[in-house]
Each structure stands twice: as structure tokens, then as C-alpha cells.
Design a protein around this nucleic acid. Sequence first.
DNA 1: GTGAAAGCGCTAACAC
DNA 2: GTGTTAGCGCTTTCAC
Lengths: 344, 344
Amino acid sequence: MKALSKGKASTIYEVAQRAGVSIATVSRALRDSDLVTADTRAKVKAAAAELRFTPNRSGRALAEGRHAANGIVFPDLVGPYYAEVVLGYEEAAAAVGSSVLILATHGRADAAAAVQELAGRVDGLAIMGQTVGDDVVRDIAATGLPLVLLARAPVAGVDTISTRNQRTAGQLTEHLLGHGHRRFAFLGDPAGSPDVAGRYAGLAAALRTRGLVPPPPVPCGLDLDSGERAARDLLAHPPDAVICANDEIALGVHLAAEQRRIHIPGDVAVTGWDDLMAARFAHLTTVAQPMRELGAVAARWLHRRIGERTARTDGRTSAARRRVLPTRLVVRRSCGTHPSEVHK
Amino acid sequence: MKALSKGKASTIYEVAQRAGVSIATVSRALRDSDLVTADTRAKVKAAAAELRFTPNRSGRALAEGRHAANGIVFPDLVGPYYAEVVLGYEEAAAAVGSSVLILATHGRADAAAAVQELAGRVDGLAIMGQTVGDDVVRDIAATGLPLVLLARAPVAGVDTISTRNQRTAGQLTEHLLGHGHRRFAFLGDPAGSPDVAGRYAGLAAALRTRGLVPPPPVPCGLDLDSGERAARDLLAHPPDAVICANDEIALGVHLAAEQRRIHIPGDVAVTGWDDLMAARFAHLTTVAQPMRELGAVAARWLHRRIGERTARTDGRTSAARRRVLPTRLVVRRSCGTHPSEVHK
DNA sequence: GTGAAAGCGCTAACAC
DNA sequence: GTGTTAGCGCTTTCAC
């Protein structure tokens, strides 16, 4: 047993030589094919262990025509939202034997190229939010690569998973109206994402039902700092309630209010969206989304699509799927303390 | 221009045929080699664009002998800590042109196999915390794969990056002593991780310096629920101060105290570690760690190691590196409100 | 049951 | 400047 030469990974040829068999037999034995005798298998596995052999995945991927890896693309890294989705995705992908590649686009101009390059490394791809344009999505879909869109406006022929926005935003609005609030502000940019658009639409619809005029949205980034900055202006003349497009914005408002010694909910009600861990400790009324589940469903759908793809010889696949995951209103103190609360 | 046949990605051969050149020329043109005329390059790029050609990375990886991808292994998914590290890693890796594979071990028994398999897909690997044993680390290191350990006890010959625990824990303890606290409790399991061990050691050392006897640690998982559960017993007879191994535990204590109507810091002081976003809103005194930076440094070190590896023909590489990133005490309300505060 | 050999898609000598 | 061709490490027919 000669020692390992440090610095280079061993190949199937070395294992074959050491075990005294052919590379074909090594390949079979290591993958527990029943085309080898138990004896040979043991011999091969011993040799592989001695050499600390791990098959080079590029070689295998090329030979098998598949990567055994999926990718997920998300726009940005700020805040826990995307992290949760990615982790749900990883968990589900690992469960079906797929490695996971991640890509953050950071709103970079060359995002499209990076996504295209990623597409060449994986068997399936999940694309979140506003990372790349519809044209890129269509191009990739046209290659036949299984794709699923997350929290993003649908593209013809591509699977899409999102979370319920409009209806729950309506519930939230009703709840605030129940507190007696009438003058609202909305912090967030409906043009920036379909999620924010849905939340604003839900607010607007609920107000109109009550004969109230919806406020124009106040455009705002989805991070804490943007929320704090936007709030500095807004709180000069506080409305009854500030509905924020997500928790980070709401937490920013919280900080700005603290600085101005404006009391929440006494002087102004504030709500968020996402139910981040921090929301609980800021006593923020918000909407909980199944972020982990969002990622997990995406991974499972891709797995099935990949299976379909290899199963069929013709190009046909089943129709594009849609799914909207339910969200849930989480009432805490920030929306008001009036006894008129209906939701308990 | 005949239409694309949906369902299969195009290859370099098809591009070559369409452009009327050889595959070698396609390869060169697409990689902007200056061995092709501008004219040919344009022709090839046009053909590639028409076919929506993206090079298959497995083929390229096999030919180049490198994956252009790095991996990162982390134990678990609970809480924002690992997410931050991973995202810092991704960002830095992307900056040097590396894709990123993630793997969560979840304390699974077959973690070693999963990590070994990952090792076969990447040019370098970052391994966090208690994901796999030293034996696995040594095996992988022996293959010559560049490796970096994160927040983990060092292994001979392998690069390690960690954050400062003991000294800052001492500062934290001094601060608490300054508030007049004398009876302490420590929530966390020093045997579970070197980070926790370091934090406890810092506490113990600081107390001994003052002639006080350190409390035995109260073993506790690193998540919110574990903290809340542990606090239920602990708060029956509250000490002056509860020093928690991380923020999630401290936030759990916070919730338990709220339920029992025990006031923080009036009745008991509480501190955490990590400075999560939620810590700010729970007014938690804690220690900030550069989590993003931790990941980013790992990615940069790996990049350099990979460069060294291909540069040298002999097996030699420079000695194993160590780095300890600084941490910073963040004083908020949860540690006490006495006027004797020294740290501002 | 095992081996020989033909690729998988790409890069990089080496010719011309 | 461009084409030919030999691999990269592996899986998988196809013979034996």
C-alpha cells in the first residue's frame, strides 16, 4: 500500500489498477450495480477507500448528461427573506439528491450573463423576483431547462410559485379600519415587484370598498435604511397608519419614530410584511409568509420536471403550473390597541 | 435561420456548423481569444446568439481540470447567523468568478458522504462549525483540495478563520460587573462548539480575576426555543445576569421573562452574541461579529489557494494560515441601566 | 460477471 | 488565423 501522493485527487483508473479490475467494473461496483460479484465489489471499495477516491463530478456529469445540481437565483442579500427561501430550497433539493448552486444578482447589469452561465451548470433553476428580465427567462426556458419562477410575475409556459398578497392585504386593511384608522400611507414601490403591487392593490381595493380614497404609494426600497429614510419625511405629518411593503421598512419606520419620540401605535400605527424574527420583538403587526416552503416547493417541482424531461423522448411536457401559497395576518401591538379588535 | 428545437441545449458543434468554422474557432471566439479575427468572432457570436448557446460547464470543467465553483458547508439552518456568512461568501466568490455550492448538513449522520461528494464538484471548500469530524477534514485536505475552516477548531495544515470570543467575553463580563451584577448564569454548551467554549472561558477568566467563582454553564441549544425552555427553569430563581451563548438564546430568555412578568434589566440582565437584527429591537446588549466578512475572507483565501495550486508544479504550498476577526461589544438596555457605565 | 471501447462537450496542443 | 485531434474522468453499450 503505497502512500497517497498529496495534491492530486485519484481517478477511476488508479482504483482499477489497485483493485486489479477494469474501470468499468470500478464504476459498477462503486454505484452498487448488481452486475458485479460481492467479492469484486468489496475489493473495489477497499481500493477506493485506500486511495480516498471520490469520483470527479464533471466527468460523471458529462457522461450522464446531467449535473445532479440545481440552482437558485435571488436578487439581493439584504435581510433574512431570501435566506429563508434559499435554505428551504437547499433542504428540499438535498432530500432528492441534488446539489444546490446559489447566485445573487445584486441588481448587477451583467446579471443575465451570470444566470445564463449558471443555467449551463444545472439541471433546473429557480429564479426569484426581479433578477432578470422576461427575455432571459424565455431564452432559458427555450433550451428546455426546467425552470420555476418565485415571487415574480409569470412568464408564458413557465412554472410560477408566489404567495398570497392581495387578499391578505385586504384583511390587514380591514383590521386597521376596525381600529378606527382612516388616513393611510403605503410605503413601498408597486412598480418594483409584483408582491408589492399585490399588497398595495389589496389595500386600495379594501379602502375603495369602504368608500375611501387610497393614498398614492410612497416609493421606498425594501430595506431597513430605506424605511427609516422614508419615515423621516412621512412622520413630519403622521397619518393614522403606515402600511409598509415589508418588515424591514416597518422596522425602519419604528426606528425613525423612536427618534422623533412618536409613539407606536399611540400616535401612528405601523404594519409590515414577512414576519421576520425581529418583527416579533418590535411587536410589529405583519403578515407571515411561508418562505421556507416557497423554496421547498420550488425544489420539488424542479425535481419532477427534471424527471419528466428525461422520461419523455418527445419534447412535450405538461402545462405550466401556478401555485399561490397562503399567507397569514399576525396581529401584534403596532397596529393599535383599541378594544374594537375583531381579529383575536 | 431555422428555429431552435426546444428541449435540448445546443453544443459547440452546432454553433461551429452554423458559423461555418471549426469548434476550436468557436471556443476561441467565445472566450475572446485574440487568435481570431474580429470578423470571425462576430460571425461566431452571432451564430451562438441565434442558437442561444451556453457552453456546457461539465465539458469545460473536465477539459480545464477545474470547476470554477467553490462550496460552503454549514451545520444548520436555524437563525440568520449562517445565512449571513454564506451570503458574504457568495458575494466574494462571485467577485472572483466562482460559482457557489451550498450544503447544509443538519447534523445528519451521512454528512461526511455529502461533504465528500461536494468536494468532488468544487475547486475549494469552506467548512463551518461542527459539520464533520477532523478525519473528514484531513481526508479532503489530503487530496490537495484547498480548504478553509470557519468558526471551528483548527486542524493541522488547514487554514482557519474564526472570530474573537474570549477577549470580548471578558469585556462583556467587566461591563456587567460595572453594573453591579455579581451572580451570573451562562446559557450554552461549551462542549458543543469552540465559539461557545471561548465565550464561556472569557466569562470565567474575568470572574476569577475579580475573585469570583464562575457559574457552571447551563447546556442549551443555540436556537430561540432552547433558550426559552432553559430560561423557564432559570428564571424561577433569577441570577443578576444571564449571559447567553448567542442572541437567539437571549431572545428566548426575553420571551420567557415577558411571560413571567420578569423585567429586563430591572430584575435580571440578559446578554447575547451575534447582534442579529432582532437584537436591536429587543434592546439586547450583545457582541457584533463580522459574519459577512467571515464568509468573504474565506472565499478570498480559497481563491488564492486555488491559484497557488495551479501555479506550482511541486506539491508544496505555503503554511496554514490563521485569522481571528475582531468582535465588538454592543451595549443596549438589557444589561442594566445603572449610571456606573464605563463603556459608552 | 467483466473488459474494451465509444462517447459526453469542451479546451488546448499541434499542424497547416 | 484556423482546423485537426487528443484527451479531461466518467458511464455505458457491446462483446466475450
